[in-house]
């Protein structure tokens, strides 16, 4: 340890600590900075802050559709929402949808990324084709798939009937049992290219030297994947699944356009349900309470989301 002691150089005396300026003084000193962000802040307050406050306020009232009255009910909307079996059915559907879609899209997207990362003839074309679902609009995708899979005039059902593979029309969207797997599959088709792009970008940063080291160390393809690729992609994998999870939790368009939440609520998700309560049944108070509940759930998930996004660097810090 003599070496490290010899390296110690005389250190400059610590600078006298200036008193920390007060909040107001700080704002005054940086007034120009505040001025620059003021327009953005103002817009945020208007389009996010105001609706949030308004929704919370509204959630304590009953709003009978025929009159314009607001009737104070306290936590009535909340107890009614949380106490209904329908809420829990919808919650179950939503998690089924979210977990199922995210997991499947992840596995298929990862596989696709691994395939199109390899060098082969026509790779560019394959990559482009696999990206198509991602760039198609949700509305177009929903209608195309509805027509594809419709039990009466759908392409799939009709063709299978013609070929004699099946004897009765293939009922998917109208089946309580099959509607969720079907909409999830369509969603996976729409989402897997996103996973593919994210992981492809990650795969291209796997250090070549590490791969070669693993080869020389005797690792086969699977071990190289498991011991080098996956650990290297850990951050990308985390972010990708979290993003997908949040997006799927908030899904509306695909399901609403393909099934409207039916049959008999079998494919009802949180957001489609809120939409129905608010804009079809016009029960704004109840929809607001529903929204506030979801807001709290999402907020707690957002905590993990932010933590994963910002705390990832913890293990990368080097000791001084």
């Amino acid at each position: 340890m003599a070496l490290s002691r010899a390296r110690v150089l005389p250190v400059a005396p610590p600078r006298a600590r200036r008193p920390r300026p007060g909040l107001f003084a700080s704002i005054v000193r940086h007034w120009a900075d505040y001025l620059y962000v003021a327009p953005a802040l103002l817009v945020m307050v208007l389009v996010i802050g105001y609706p949030v406050v308004y929704t919370v306020y509204l959630s304590f009232f009953e709003t009978p559709p025929r009159s314009g009255d607001w009737v104070w009910t306290g936590v009535g909307n909340y107890t009614e929402t949380l106490g209904s079996a329908r809420f829990w059915d919808t919650t179950r559907n939503t998690f089924y949808w979210t977990v199922g879609s995210t997991a499947l899209a992840f596995v298929i997207g990862f596989g696709a990324a691994l395939v199109v990362q390899r060098q082969f003839v026509g790779r560019g074309i394959v990559r482009a084709i696999l990206l198509i679902p991602y760039v198609i609009s949700h509305v177009a995708a929903a209608y195309v798939w509805r027509w594809f899979l419709h039990s009466d005039y759908g392409l799939v059902s009709g063709t299978l009937l013609d070929w004699g593979v099946i004897e009765r029309p293939l009922v998917l969207f109208d089946s309580i049992r099959w509607v969720m797997p079907t909409v999830i599959l369509v969603n996976v088709w729409k989402e897997f290219p996103f996973v593919m792009i994210m992981l492809l970008a990650g795969l291209q940063t796997v250090p070549d030297q590490l791969m070669r080291a693993a080869k020389v160390d005797g690792a086969g393809a699977w071990n190289r994947f498991w011991h080098v690729t996956v650990p290297h992609l850990k951050g990308v994998i985390l972010i990708t699944t979290l993003l997908l999870f949040v997006v799927n939790l908030n899904s509306f368009t695909l399901v609403y356009l393909m099934t409207g939440g039916g049959p008999a609520g079998a494919s009802q998700l949180w957001i489609t349900e809120i939409y129905n309560i608010a804009f079809r049944s016009l029960r704004y108070g109840e929809a607001s309470a529903y929204s506030v509940v979801l807001f709290l759930i999402m907020l707690s998930m957002g905590y993990f989301y932010v933590k994963a996004l910002t705390g990832g660097g913890k293990s990368q810090r080097r000791p001084a």
Partner: peptide, 21 residues
Amino acid sequence: LDPKDRDLAMVFQNYALYPNK
């Protein structure tokens, strides 16, 4: 022969240590 069957060891310029291990 595959690299793993050659029974040679290699030391790389950037050390190529497995960062997660």
